[in-house]
Design a binder for these strands. Structure first.
Lengths: 297, 297
DNA sequence: TTCACAATTCCATAATTTGGAATAATATTA
DNA sequence: TAATATTATTCCAAATTATGGAATTGTGAA
């Protein structure tokens, strides 16, 4: 008999996804496994939980109600396996190598890792922050975090959240030079730029309908996102910043969003690790901890 | 990785048992499976949940607290798979053949089956009540209930409860002839007897330290336990009766226990079904229902 | 000191799970 | 309208996990 807990987990994830394939990706399993789990659950419940065809899925009313209860109880059981602090067994000793984008690392990842280190002092976290494309296998990384696409079946990937890209500037700057009304206006306004370490060129800004705009003349540019952000805060120019970097400053009204109507579709943030095999407990522990902490947004 | 839900179930059952072997019997699994589940749970929790050696087990304090929470959450998840009344799918249509001892059938099994029929009107219960040894496979029985021993690996067996055997008589009879002070005294007192259908002879009475006593001269004898019980109630003689038959009459002081100090160790009551394989849903449903209703004592 | 019994470990076998490949269905695009 | 791309589903061979018998070890009772 299928693992009932996993069945519920799969069902709940599918209920929050636009397709079984998406649910499968989020869980790091195959689409067939999703189909099987949902079918078996429907058989046990004696009810259809999804209306579906090859083009889209729709939770039934029964399925929605069931999902609410199931998610809660699933969480309650999962807690039984997470709340306790394990003994310092050998399995939790050892290094965990993590790679993540710089900005995300500073803003979101470090708090989660500090929390983890408090709980598990014996873990040895080896964190590589880089905006370069890091290969998990070749660089001997245990866990990676990446923005964009995960079309590589070598990895178990889970989507953590969505990353929005905002165009922002300081209020002072906007008072001085006005707000851009279109993407083209950026050509005549001071902007900062983030340098792509791989190419030495500036990252293009992305907009809705796959439009792109690359700064040519910048007031400030750097490969260091932190430095760019400082420049933006100090009125050096407009910049396109991921929401996790900008949101606190936006909340404090130290930065202002512009060109909101042409914002691009959000990018996916993934956490991934090498293809399954015997995974050390400490890797799994860190992976699961990061999934749970970084998904809450 | 082990099935976490089953791990919890095994742990909770072990926490309520005097040995891992007993827990294994109750769950219809092997003792190795219990050992494995508990060890894995201890590894995940990083705590010892049992102090144990080959002679006895003791839940730790941590284990006790964990068991309380785990049991509740396990029940909540199990409910997800039980509360709904499934559609009248083909799988719940059909006959379920059950065999049980006569007395137990009348007293305990029928109420549970009536309840089940109310919930699932489409079930077709085929109940065979007999004190003969019924072979589940040969007689095409889906579910059997048996008192005594289940040393047959052909079956999935679960212990339901313990059956005590009481020597009882009516108060009137005791007033007339006195109480027996020893097993030997029974030779000089009126007794009733239950006839073994298989052999035509009287069932022996069983006592502590594996002592047995077989009535020779009886005031009344029958293969029908109900008739024997009526005889006992009406003062025809002493009888050895299982507790499920006697307990109501004892409570109402219509019968009185004697020779309590030589009562045998309780016998196990088992529910069993043929060895696992594809088991129809309705069989499983009835089996699980009976397990849950008949274990409560 | 011996014995009986149960927890645990090991290992071969059985059962289950898995994902690639194939098939069928469906919305989108040309 | 036909072709294409994508996804749900099914099938099947391979991989992985679960299982219980046998053996070992430990422990309380006789």
């Amino acid at each position: 008999m299928l693992n009932r807990l996993e069945m519920l987990r799969i069902f709940c994830t599918a209920a929050e996804s636009r397709s079984f394939k998406e649910a499968a990706n989020r869980l790091g399993i195959s689409p067939q496994a999703v189909t099987r789990a949902v079918k078996e659950l429907e058989r046990l419940q004696g009810e259809l939980l999804f209306h579906r065809n090859t083009r889209h899925i729709q939770v039934t009313l029964v399925g929605e109600k069931f999902a609410v209860i199931a998610k809660e109880r699933l969480r309650a059981v999962d807690e039984l396996f997470q709340t306790s602090v394990p003994n310092s067994g050998n399995e939790l000793q050892g290094r965990v190598r993590i790679a993540a984008p710089v900005g995300f690392g500073h803003k979101c990842l470090m708090p989660a890792l500090l929390e983890l280190s408090t709980i598990h002092p014996q873990l040895d976290i080896d964190l590589t922050l880089s905006d370069e494309r890091v290969d998990v296998v070749d660089e001997k990384i245990d866990i990676g975090i990446r923005i964009g696409f995960m079309r590589d079946s070598r990895f178990i990937a889970r989507q953590l959240t969505k990353i929005n890209m905002y165009v922002v500037a300081s209020p002072d700057l906007i008072n001085r030079v006005g707000r851009p009304a279109s993407i083209e206006d950026l050509n005549h306004l001071p902007v900062t730029g983030l340098v792509d370490c791989n190419t030495g060129k500036l990252w293009p800004w992305v907009f809705s309908m796959d439009r792109q705009w690359t700064p040519s003349i910048t007031r400030f540019r750097s490969a260091d996102a932190e430095a760019e952000l400082m420049g933006v805060q100090n009125g050096l120019g407009f910049a396109q910043i991921p929401d996790f970097s900008a949101q606190d400053l936006l909340r404090q009204e130290k930065l202002v969003r512009v060109l909101e109507e042409v914002e691009p579709v959000p990018w996916d943030l993934y956490i991934y690790r090498p293809q399954r095999g015997p995974v050390p407990q400490r890797i799994r522990l860190v992976f699961d901890h990061l999934v749970s902490r970084l998904s809450v947004r």
